[in-house]
Design a protein around this nucleic acid. Structure first.
Length: 818
RNA sequence: GCCGGAGUGGCGGAACUGGUAGACGCGCUGGAUUCAAAAUCCAGUUACUUCGGUAGUGGGGGUUCGAUUCCCCCCUCCGGUACCA
């Protein structure tokens, strides 16, 4: 055994052995309990960052631990390879996105291998290959036939100078990030997936996800946003059109003082023909940012359209306003406004001098002052004619019944969730497999013609997608009638690819079908690990896809991810690492200097996985020092020669205490890794054990036998976290079998038995002393021991004891008067 | 704006079910070793203190014998907000 710890040598040799022996190849075996562990695959941006190191180390620790538990583990890795950065790099460096992406993948694959992550590399996939994306094209055409996709116009950010569509992140303060031109909205036809058809299931099935963090389920439930309300029809004066609104507060219907519609609403556009002020307003709204955050924080503005709506109950006329806070693409594009009982309507009404009609009063007859703010609580109806005196629930039914009878409304369940717009006007993505025929309309590309391949040898210059000016790509014949037709040149949202990769990993080599029977062996994913930033969108889309694939007969379960671990961000100086801030840490430098085990140990030790992790060069050195101490401890032990057999019955109290510490540590570490995923506390516990061993100075035969036992357990416990050094130390401790194939150690319960325990003694909740009592002492004797303690006496002397609380195994609290 | 989190020594964090606040690591201080330094090892390290104690987990209130933990209000920071992934 080498005297010094040389991580580079050890790590290279161990990784070579894993590679040659195909250690991490996953083979379906119905007789073994499977465990599918998946970390969110990376976008191949060029090099690994610390967030990747953290994400993939967490996955690897869990995978290796489960392997030691005897599970048949699948841990795959691949590349989320389509996306905007490749196009940006292409513009900057004049390199086609494809070659840039493939080069990045090659480099990052080596980096992952150097970290010693136990992946089955035979299952590697990249989403930008036709072998992968052909199957999502195929699924899309199936959904097209089923009517689950449709086309409608929707707004995009448009830069009139660059003549291109901008992503939300490319809009900075309402202007184009590259040329600073004010961004405009443009309505263009786009493809949508009917995720709203699955809204109810996506909400209800959250209950199945016991292994998901509550906060993520809450965020998804809020995002889906199920509500029960009324759809109400308003007539328009001198107009045969009607206006539908949806409200969750039909009890306030009699307080409606105006109706607000989106600027883009057909009624508003029609009215603008003879209204220059409204025209200007519509134009102004066209320049607003499309993001929800921008819409909600913008000043609320509106213009009267001049149209009057007819109240469905009273028949009274209320004005129709065009307002910038009403979205055309959401709901009916119109809302009824009740200033007295909705804060936003209240502020709008004050700004434009619209009437504020109170129709709800507090149920407890307390004051409701409408001069300062709206009264938004539910209460009792007033000023509401035949509905006066009703509660919220009663008025809901009464008003619904009334409107149904009049054919002016009905009860409706509504969802905040909107259908998923999947069209992107970008090049580097999966071509949407649709052909537009002048006669037949939109026609799905027949499955025998799939995949629709994206041309890779192109020049991207920032003036729009190159395939939009490539007749050789878009010119084609209609599959139905044979007439000249054109392909879609839009591509899919990249969330499309990441919505089903977890399933394709089970059978990535199948060239004939999207998924085969192996999917049902491995799925669902037993542990999914990724950033909290994906809590809503990615995870919701993947859940949606799973249900689509289930309904297509491709998979059997309802949900893709059984357990979810959301990791926090890696920070430096308290903020997110980013190139623009110049505070990035290159993991490669870390690995080169200290080795993969130190990088892994540091990222697991610095914080629990779901919290943000603060980077520290000094703490990395500390991790490296610990591995050196571990190495030295094993080395010094081995140097003393052969170890005799352990004789548990002959041990001194000191040695019994050491053995108890070993198995207390093992109990804690098993729970920390297996259940809690708090790797930081697991590592701390092993460090504590090592500190104890270090202080222990006994060269007797039995002491050395206990030391051998301690070091073996410590190495086994650390092996999922720092597998390379543990591989070597395990060998050095005299074992022929590779540690990666060892079982997780079992706890020797007899070593844990204790005859005395220390209990804390409090007086009035303040710690005053501690007493040592027999482990099986009864309440009375514990109480007596506490009251007899000298320091306790000082605090209770001459005072009346009101009560004594004894918490077994923990503490005694003596409550005294005064 | 809305939804979801987080806030504990000089720093990262621990305290899992309401029961010893600060485990473990970093840093710092002192010591050993060294010609010297690095490395390593040992000891100490929340603040205040009359050395008895007292205060203390973002701020303010509450429940409890007992609150970092539960409840209410507020502040700050972070994530998401539907075309970044």
């Amino acid at each position: 055994m080498q005297q010094e710890y040389h991580p580079a040598e050890i790590e290279t040799a161990v990784q070579k052995q894993w590679h040659e022996q195909k250690t991490f190849r996953a083979v379906e075996d119905p007789n073994k309990e499977k465990y599918y562990c998946l970390a969110m695959f990376p976008y191949p941006s060029g090099q690994l960052h610390m967030g990747h190191v953290r994400n993939y180390t967490i996955g690897d620790v869990i995978s290796r631990y489960q392997r030691m538990q005897g599970k048949n583990v699948l841990q795959p890795m691949g590349w989320d390879a389509f996306g905007l950065p490749a196009e940006n790099a292409a513009i900057k460096n004049k390199v086609p996105p494809a070659s840039w992406t493939y080069d990045n993948i090659d480099y990052m694959r080596d980096q992952l291998k150097r970290l010693g992550l136990g992946y089955d590399w035979e299952r590697e996939l990249a989403t930008c290959t036709p072998e992968y994306y052909r199957w999502e094209q195929w699924l899309f055409t199936r959904l097209f036939e089923k009517g689950l996709v449709y086309k409608k116009t929707a707004a995009v950010n448009w830069c009139p100078v660059d003549n291109t569509v901008l992503a939300n992140e490319q809009v900075v303060d309402g202007c184009c990030w590259r040329c600073d031109t004010p961004v405009e909205k443009r309505e263009i036809p786009q493809w949508f997936m009917k995720i709203t058809d699955y809204a109810e299931q996506l909400l209800d099935d959250l209950d199945q996800l016991d292994g998901w963090p509550e906060q993520v389920k809450t965020m998804q439930a809020n995002w889906i946003g199920r509500s029960e309300g009324l759809k109400i029809k308003f007539g328009i004066v001198d107009n045969d059109q009607t206006l539908d609104v949806y409200t969750t507060r039909p009890d306030t219907l009699m307080g409606v003082s105006y109706v607000a519609v989106a600027a883009q609403h057909p009624l508003s556009i029609k009215a603008a023909e003879s209204n220059p002020e409204l025209q200007d307003f519509i134009e102004e709204c066209r320049k607003m940012e499309t993001s929800e955050a921008a819409m909600e924080t913008a000043d609320k503005k509106g213009v009267a359209t001049g149209l009057m709506a007819i109240h469905p109950v009273t028949g009274e006329q209320v004005p129709v306003w065009a307002a910038n806070f009403v979205l055309m693409g959401y709901g009916t594009g119109a809302v009824m406004s009740v200033p007295a009982h909705d804060q936003r309507d209240y502020e709008f009404a004050q700004q434009y001098n619209l009437p504020i009609n109170q129709v709800i009063e507090p149920i407890d007859d307390s004051e409701s002052d409408l001069s300062k703010a709206a009264f938004t609580s539910k209460g009792r109806l007033i000023n509401s004619q035949q509905f006066d005196g009703l509660t919220f629930a009663d008025s809901f039914d009464a008003i619904a019944d009334f409107l149904v009878e009049q054919e002016k409304g009905e009860k409706q369940v509504n969802y905040r969730l909107r259908d998923w717009g999947v069209s992107r006007q970008r090049y580097w993505g999966t071509p949407i497999p649709i052909i537009n025929c002048p006669d037949c309309g939109a026609v799905a590309v027949p499955s025998e013609d799939l995949p629709v391949r994206l041309p890779e040898d192109v020049i991207v210059d920032g003036s729009g997608s190159p395939i939009k000016s490539m007749p050789e790509f878009y010119q084609c014949a209609c599959p139905k009638c044979g007439a000249d037709a054109e392909r879609e040149t839009d591509t899919f949202d990249t969330f499309f690819e990441s919505s089903w990769y977890y399933a394709r990993f089970t059978c990535p080599d199948n060239e004939d079908v999207m998924l085969d029977e192996r999917a049902n062996y491995w799925l669902s994913v037993d542990q999914y690990i990724g950033g909290i930033e994906h809590a809503v969108l990615h995870l919701l889309y993947a859940r949606f896809f799973h249900k689509l694939m289930r309904d297509e007969g491709l998979v059997s379960g309802d949900e893709p991810f059984k357990n979810l671990l959301t990791q926090g961000m890696v920070l430096k100086d308290g903020t997110k690492m980013s190139k623009s801030k110049g505070n990035t840490v290159d993991p490669q430098a870390l690995i080169d200097k200290y080795g993969a085990d130190t990088a892994r140990l540091f990222t697991m030790f610095a914080a629990p996985p779901d919290q943000s992790l603060e980077w520290s060069d000094k703490a990395v050195e500390g991790s490296y020092r610990f591995l050196n101490r571990l190495w030295r401890a094993v080395h010094e032990h081995i140097e003393q020669g052969k170890v005799t057999k352990l004789d548990v019955d002959s041990l001194s109290d000191d040695l019994k205490n050491i053995r108890r510490h070993i198995y207390q540590t093992l109990t804690k570490v098993s729970d920390d890794i297996g259940r809690r995923h708090t790797f930081n506390t697991a590592i701390a516990a092993v460090m504590e054990l090592m500190n104890t061993l270090n202080k222990f100075n006994d060269n007797s035969d039995q002491a050395r036998a206990v030391m051998q036992e301690a070091l073996e357990k410590a190495v086994l416990m650390l092996s999922p976290i720092t597998p390379h050094i543990c591989h070597q130390l395990w060998r050095d401790l005299g074992h022929d079998e590779a540690i990666v194939d060892m079982a997780w150690p079992e706890v020797d319960e007899s070593a844990l038995v204790q005859d005395k325990v220390d209990l804390m003694v409090q007086v009035n909740g303040k710690l005053r002393s501690k007493v040592s009592v027999a482990a099986d002492a009864d309440k009375e004797s514990i109480e007596a021991a506490a009251l007899a303690d000298d320091n306790v006496k000082r605090f209770i002397d001459g005072k009346e004891i009101r009560k004594v609380i004894v918490v077994p195994g923990r503490l005694i609290n003596i409550v005294v008067a005064g």
